[in-house]
Amino acid sequence: YKIYPYDSLIVTNSISVKLPKDVDRTRLERHLSPEEFQEVFGMSIEEFDRLALWKRNDLKKKALLF
Rank of each mutant, 00 (worst) to 15 (best):
L64E: 06
Y1E: 08
N57K: 07
G42A: 11
N57L: 11
V40I: 10
L51Q: 07
L9T: 00
D24C: 11
K18D: 15
K60R: 06
W54V: 12
P5E: 05
A63G: 04
L51T: 04
S33T: 06
R30A: 07
I10F: 04
D24G: 03
W54P: 11
F37I: 02
R25H: 12
S16I: 10
D7Q: 15
L64M: 12
N57W: 07
K62Q: 10
F48I: 00
K18V: 13
D58H: 12
G42C: 10
S8Y: 14
P34K: 14
V23E: 02
T26P: 03
E47K: 09
E36K: 05
G42L: 11
I3S: 06
N13K: 10
F66S: 08
I15V: 14
F48N: 00
I10W: 04
R25E: 11
F48H: 00
L51C: 05
L64W: 09
K62I: 09
T26N: 14
L9Y: 00
Y4A: 02
T12L: 14
V40G: 01
A52K: 09
E47T: 10
W54L: 08
L65W: 01
L19Q: 06
E46I: 13
D49M: 08
D49L: 07
L28F: 02
K55R: 12
E47L: 09
I10A: 05
F48Y: 06
I15W: 05
M43H: 03
S14C: 15
E47A: 12
L65Q: 01
I45T: 07
K60Q: 02
K62R: 11
Y4S: 01
D7L: 15
H31D: 01
Y4E: 02
L51I: 06
R50S: 12
R27E: 05
E36N: 06
V23M: 04
I3K: 07
K61M: 10
V17D: 15
R50C: 11
I3E: 08
D49C: 07
P20I: 05
H31Q: 01
E29I: 01
Y4V: 04
L28D: 00
K61Y: 08
K21Q: 14
L53R: 09
F37D: 00
P20D: 06
L59Q: 03
E29L: 02
F37T: 02
V11E: 06
Y1H: 15
L28I: 06
A52F: 06
F41T: 00
F48A: 00
I45E: 05
L51Y: 05
R56C: 02
T12A: 11
K18W: 07
L53Q: 11
N13V: 08
P34G: 09
T12M: 15
P34D: 10
M43F: 04
H31T: 01
S14R: 11
E46V: 13
F48W: 07
S33A: 10
K2G: 08
V17T: 14
D22H: 06
V11Q: 14
K62A: 11
L9W: 01
P34W: 09
S14A: 12
M43W: 03
S33P: 03
L28Y: 02
K21I: 13
R50K: 14
D22M: 04
R56N: 02
